[in-house]
Design a protein around this nucleic acid. Structure first.
Lengths: 353, 353
DNA sequence: TAGCCTTGCTGCATCGTTCCACCGGTAAAT
DNA sequence: ATTTACCGGTGGAACGATGCAGCAAGGCTA
């Protein structure tokens, strides 16, 4: 224990504990300036720090939010966690970290634990289409911000969804390739079950359609669904396998849109395996703009998720829900992605060569 | 609030709150079997969950440990965080996440906050040679496990250090290259100020010496010290720059030992930039074995840190310090690294070619 | 049968903070 | 002259769980 209590401060300052409490809790106007300085001095002198447990017991408030991510070992989530923690810290909040491994049951158990800990706000990063498993907690009063996910039918009544605009993002990526003259473009991902992957695919087909192409004839590679539903951890391995397969087909694509950067890096490796040059023989676009995208050889053209902003927005919304300054109905917030052109994309190779 | 208190459970079961408390706190033998089941049933029926704040206020105990890492955006730390959280969860503990960005001042502030939150155990991931900035907290009673760091003179009295054996690790890497016939081997890192980097360098020179070579003639590239003391974030960019420089020197190395995997990946990119083949023209060894090492093209030979074990061991030691089952003096624990041979290393090229 | 132990349970003070109710005193409003 | 309002504070009851001291009731010894 820090040891020093509000009583000791009160005695040191020659006032009552209530006055010290008033001083600490935004009512410093309730006392004479001299009293105020006496209290402030006493706090300094004794090195007093309020006991959070006692405060929480009394008020029911706690300055901690929960963060549930699939796995913080994934650089994308690690990065998000870092920015969320930064935003929280700026408001004096701490972040409790939970890794769900995308298992609904673990998500639910975590939420229950957090609730029992007195935590009233959680950022849930789960692309699961259904949130049925967390409904009871939400109706009990838990504030939830769902990240990387847009609203779905059957969602709880008061949910904030925050996500990048996946349709726009994939559209940007695809349009970029079309502009470079590519016509045989492939879309590569793992299973398409999760919400955001479905959206990215739609952005892809929309762009093709706008260019007057038939999206039903698009090359779509979507494997690995059986072993690992969301193709999360081995996205890169998946991409590599996809590249091998696609490049050895009759009419190989000249450009590939990947579901995310890890996948794109795998695809790049696969292209090299086939003796081709990334960005010259075959162009590749990723999604996310993880740190590695810029470090790869060649650096990866990708769709940047404004992850810092998204984390800050997530925290801000969560806080206003917790503080009940915002009690509105469910809403979705889509942040605008940005195309970052690097060297993994280039003009379509001349077919006459 | 979960709402239901120990009093309601007591009334429901027809006993006193004390009995419910006894039931919950490992003294179920102090009552008749029938009483026990009545209490258990009441808890079930009401869905009672103990209020942690109240419990913490009363006992001073809290089932949360702190984790301070340089940045969870770095895959290595993200991975460690994941495993630490797993170990903690198995014991019913939660993990509070803090990103220090390697700033001593932030480390200190975090520790003070955690202390005020009632947290009595923290895993501190800091390679800073001096821990002076956290001494006051430790002597106040905070249990500290220092990760990725070995004991130094001037450390606080009761500190557990957990780290991989860096000397052995770098020795393994270097010996592997020597066995492959390489003689011109370079060591590449950012600043050498941090503890583990110094150790890895020693492992490198030791291995050269054992092979009958003069370590003072070894090729050492250690740049970027001015701009960014620990070369953490742009380790890859650093590696790339190093590769460019080294490969254009009079007598370029045929093999390179990198301070870590990110750096090694950068070096690989630099080798390709120079029109050479990684693993054939120039061999590269990394350190850490991050997920990406296996996904790179070519896959990276590296020294694996048993990160899962290290996280589990860290938590176990931390807990026994918190519980005061282990109050021994300061100690260091070195886990054994393992060489993982992949395709980024190969026989030294024939000098006659 | 008095004295003492054991068993199974309860009463109550306590952890540190908050915040509502209230106090005496003075000044302004009615 | 009485009411009302405010000022600068204080008192004390919570918040929910814990664990010590203690208390009946029954059993044991002598």
């Amino acid at each position: 224990m820090s040891g020093v209590t509000i009583y000791q401060v009160a005695r040191e300052a020659g006032v009552s504990p209530s006055t010290v409490s008033n001083f600490l809790n935004g009512r410093p106007g309730r006392m004479l300036p001299q009293t105020r300085t006496r209290v402030a001095d006493a706090i300094d002198r004794l090195g007093y720090r309020p006991n959070r447990a006692a405060r929480q017991l009394r008020t029911g408030q706690i300055q901690v939010v929960g963060l549930i991510v699939p796995s913080v070992a994934n650089p994308f989530w690690g990065n998000f966690a870092r920015y969320l923690e930064r935003a929280a810290l700026a408001d004096g909040y701490h972040v409790l970290l939970c890794n769900s491994e995308r298992e609904p049951d673990r998500e639910r158990r975590y939420l229950e634990e957090l609730w029992a800990d007195g935590i009233r706000g959680v950022v849930l990063c789960s692309s699961l289409p259904s949130l049925d498993h967390v409904l009871p907690l939400v109706s009990a009063g838990l504030s939830l911000v769902a990240f990387d996910r847009t609203a779905q039918a059957g969602d709880p009544g008061s949910l904030v969804n925050i996500s990048v605009d996946n349709v726009v993002g994939a559209h940007l990526a695809t349009a970029h390739l079309l502009e470079l003259g590519h016509r045989r473009i492939a879309f590569v991902s793992g299973s398409l079950r999760s919400v955001n992957r479905r959206e990215r695919f739609r952005g892809f087909t929309d762009a093709l359609e706008q260019a007057g192409m038939d999206p039903t004839e698009a090359i779509v590679w979507s494997g690995g669904a059986e072993q690992e539903p969301y193709g999360d951890l081995d996205a890169a391995g998946l991409g590599r396998a996809a590249a091998h397969e696609l490049l050895h087909s009759d009419k190989p694509p000249t450009a590939i849109v990947a579901i995310n950067d890890m996948c794109a890096l795998g695809i790049s490796a696969g292209i090299r395996d086939a003796g081709l040059r990334v960005g010259q023989d075959v162009s590749v676009v990723g999604f996310d703009d993880i740190v590695l995208a810029d470090l790869a050889a060649p650096p990866l053209t990708t769709v940047r998720q404004p992850i810092g902003d998204m984390a800050a927005v997530s925290f801000r919304h969560l806080r206003s829900r917790i503080d009940e300054t915002d009690t509105g109905p469910s809403q979705s917030l889509l942040l605008r992605p940005e195309l970052v052109v690097r060297a993994s994309t280039g003009p379509a190779p001349d077919p006459r060569e």
